[in-house]
Nucleic acid binder design. Structure first.
Lengths: 226, 226
DNA sequence: TCGGCATGCGACCGACCAGTCATATGACCG
DNA sequence: CGGTCATATGACTGGTCGGTCGCATGCCGA
């Protein structure tokens, strides 16, 4: 948790610091990321950083568990309740992809929970975040199973497969689509112009189709256009 | 590339060094891994390391592109050409899982290519390894498509989805299955006793079923037992 | 005006690292 | 024996880091 001083900071100073922290932690590993660097870039003396946070991990934890989720929620909004299970899932995936495109750095920060690291404390943090995400997705799929839309002999396993598809899998596909590397993407604030809603929708549909019907059978006729 | 001295080393010294290097790079990020640590643990003076390799990256590259693939090839053997496309894929997946279980550290080292990093040289190395893996898998799937077993509107996208399933996805599932964390697993030489061939086969089948039929339709009758 | 308190600040500390280098060792050769 | 060459060795350099500390600053209430 940030110290109280942090919340009493002049808005501009805090915003600048948080921005630079996100930039740093988004394009470097926890181990590689440097408080000194953040402080330098935000033009804030290093000593001050320790007035705001206990230590490096405290800042990282706050970003990962509070700030990034808050900003993501604000962007993604409430999950849709319209339509059948599969189109709801498609919406969900499309929203996630939109977040990735519009806020690459935040998306990368959110995804950092999957990064490996030798630091046990960071590992614990990452794990709890991953597990929460998995549980959330599991609940979604459970509902799908109850509605009869989805059939899985082992829902835990299925959940993890689906999670890797709509997480790293889709990210990989999007990067491929853009012909860019993660790091080029992190340098830009938004990729709006390079991957519009239409194409996103198409990719989301491809992902959901994959999850729904796999690759083993000829595709049924396309579902209604969005 | 290692320097020529490296290849002239007494077998025991080289083996010990390589072993400790694998241990170090398998459970830490490239940035976190330390040559000093490797040298200490192998009881080899640090200066000597630089008689064998140009620098840290040189060692890492050799491990990732030469040593790990060599050991992996030796373990997994030639891909099977028996049976239909889907059962061949299942074999392929099962072999990969067996490697993960029998040689967790080597598997982790091989998977390190997906790790993020701020170091551009390491990034380039990782990328080329990933890309090679994708191409290999793509060729497999292409054959499946030609044989009519597999249908994908966009094979590139499909390949990337499949890759994440049988890579991180399966690893995740296996860890879940073992109720262990990656780091606990890296501490042990082999998990033979905790995840035998039968269970592996079942998991491989689940993964391939997922890829083949997805989650949207009731499962067809089980294919023949292995 | 003064005192005290929150905060700003940056030099400093100890740790660790990648990589170098001068010196030492010892095998082989003439 | 002397010389040379590959190799071993570990102290050392320069750098970065996370984190601390003591002084400086400036606001607020009396």
């Amino acid at each position: 948790m940030p110290k109280s001083t942090f919340f009493r900071l002049p808005e501009e100073r805090r915003a600048r610091f948080v921005h630079e922290a996100i930039v740093e932690f988004a394009d470097r590993t926890y181990a590689e990321a440097s408080l000194s660097q953040i402080a330098r870039r935000a033009s804030i003396p290093k000593g001050s950083v320790y007035q705001y946070f206990e230590d490096k991990l405290d800042l990282y934890r706050w970003l990962l568990t509070e700030e990034a989720p808050r900003l993501k929620r604000a962007f993604v909004g409430k999950p849709s309740v319209e339509g059948d299970f599969w189109s709801r899932l498609e919406d969900f995936v499309e929203r996630g992809m939109a977040f990735l495109v519009e806020h690459p750095r935040l998306a990368r920060l959110s995804a950092a929970a999957a990064d490996p690291t030798a630091n046990p404390e960071v590992r614990g943090l990452h794990k709890s975040i991953c597990e929460a995400g998995i549980q959330e997705l599991r609940a979604v799929l459970e509902a799908g199973a109850e509605s009869g839309a989805l059939h899985a002999s082992d829902l835990d396993v299925a959940t993890r497969f689906v999670a890797t598809i709509i997480g790293p899998g889709l990210t990989d596909v999007v990067l491929q689509e853009l012909g860019a590397e993660l790091h080029e993407v992190l340098a830009s604030d938004s990729l709006r112009k390079r991957l519009g809603p239409k194409r996103r929708r198409a990719l989301a549909r491809q992902a959901v189709d994959f999850i729904r019907t796999g690759l083993g059978s000829a595709k049924p006729e396309r579902r209604k256009e969005a």
